[in-house]
Computed example of a mutant assay.
Amino acid sequence: MKGLYCRAGVSDAEPKFVIQETNLPEVLGSHQVRVQVKACGLSQLDLKLLSDVGIQRDLIPVGREVAGVVLQVGPKVTFFQPEDEVAGILPLDSPCSGLCEVIDIEEHYLVQKPEKLSSVCVAGALRDGLSAYTALHTHARIAAGHTLLVMDGASPFGLTCIQLACYHGVKVLTTSHSPQQHTFLEQLRPSVGVQDPLVARVIPVYKSSSDLLSEVLEETGGLGVDLVIDSGVRLHEAEEDDKEKKLFPHKHDIISVLGVGGHWVTSQHDLQLDPPDCRLLYLKSASVSFLNPEVWTASSAQQGRYLHILKDIVEKMSAGVLRPQAEEAVPLYEATVAMETVQRHQKKKAVVQL
């Protein structure tokens, strides 16, 4: 049986992705489930994070968001039976790749998958759903009547945030990175209920004359937004020369659009705030938190809440509340190339169908 693994490069060398033979133990653990994988989502591998939590291997398993069918269960498994359809995210320290035909996984990392959802759809959306839930509920604690600014709303993560926030009665503003994205976001409608736009205002940031602050203040009556969720920020003006970061908002712009008591959830792992930035946050009594969705599988402190989130994600997808953009599945023999594309930021994610 073969799986996809990453051979980390030396110093600044790019990591290499290789197909390796792997074997499963003959005997299942007490709480383990043996799953035949139907689809696997590929997301960017954070080698720095793995090193920080002490996971250092010659070969690192790749592909952690999986959906499939239960083949066999351990003697103490209570949640699942053979032939159940399941979905889940493999833990950071998982020894096996999700791109194997059959994997062994602890039962408390899996939830039941509704029959009407395809394995490809679930595997492609599970990670973004978890990130959106973590940002909106765990960090921002959204409530009806809040105003939310989602940066890059047409990205898979941004789209999930918009749909989830609207479901809870939150007024949403977002930014677009191209004319096509702008049109897509303005035409977003819910699948059920009143067909009002999901987004109150789409702010184009691809135009040189775009002014994020003035448009947000105009939409909010000068008060600013309660919540901001970014997908990365610029720390210095010099980063405008970087094509990848040019469309990211500057950190000072985000702090400026926050209202009194506002909250900023950032994906920028190396965020640095200067004294003037901190002073502005202090004057607004605003706060910042860091979005790291890996904490759920890196720690077992809130395992029950984590499973509740996964279950709610697949149920809302089944009900049509969350409608992720469909990812075109690639066959297994293209997995290596697809993962290299994702790792180089040329694509947000990929889904492999087994």
Rank of each mutant, 00 (worst) to 15 (best):
A329L: 01
S231A: 12
A132S: 09
D230C: 03
D93N: 15
G304W: 02
V265L: 11
I203P: 03
E106Y: 01
E240Q: 13
G232I: 00
V33S: 09
A238V: 06
D93H: 04
E340G: 06
Q180Y: 12
E315A: 12
L223Q: 14
K349N: 05
M339H: 14
S118Q: 01
L24V: 08
V202K: 09
K38N: 09
V192E: 07
G74F: 02
Q72F: 10
Q302D: 05
G158K: 05
V102S: 09
S118R: 15
P331N: 04
S178C: 04
Q181T: 08
K311W: 08
C96H: 15
G145F: 02
D58A: 01
L310F: 04
P293Q: 07
Q36R: 02
V150R: 00
G54E: 00
C161Y: 00
S43T: 08
A67D: 01
V352A: 07
Y5M: 12
E218S: 14
V86N: 09
V111W: 02
E186A: 11
N23H: 14
A200P: 11
L28W: 12
L223T: 03
V77C: 14
G88R: 00
G153Q: 09
W264D: 07
L281Q: 05
P91A: 07
G221Y: 00
I203T: 06
T220R: 05
K207Y: 06
V18N: 05
G68L: 00
Q56D: 06
E315S: 15
R64E: 09
S267A: 13
E328Q: 15
A298L: 10
C100D: 11
E106Q: 11
A8R: 05
D58T: 06
R279N: 12
R34T: 09
H168I: 12
L71K: 04
L99K: 11
S51Q: 12
G320S: 04
R305C: 13
S176C: 00
A132Q: 02
L198M: 06
L117I: 04
L185Y: 01
A132M: 06
A123S: 02
E215L: 04
L354Y: 13
L50Q: 03
A132C: 03
Y109A: 00
R201E: 05
V314N: 08
S300D: 07
Q195L: 09
H108S: 05
T160G: 03
Q187A: 13
A298W: 10
T174I: 07
K316I: 02
A329G: 15
L354C: 13
G261C: 03
D241W: 08
G232V: 09
L217I: 04
L4V: 00
L283N: 07
A350D: 03
Q20M: 10
P114A: 00
K347C: 07
A140Y: 05
G41F: 03
L50C: 10
E65C: 08
E239K: 00
Y282H: 04
A301W: 07
L235S: 10
Q187V: 02
I55K: 10
R344W: 05
L332D: 11
G193C: 12
S118K: 15
L110Q: 03
G88F: 09
L188T: 09
D277I: 02
T336Q: 15
T220I: 12
W264M: 11
L45M: 01
E215V: 02
M339K: 04
T183D: 15
R344V: 13
S210R: 10
H137P: 10
R127A: 14
H263D: 01
L271Y: 05
T183A: 15
Q32A: 14
Y306M: 02
Q303R: 10
L271T: 11
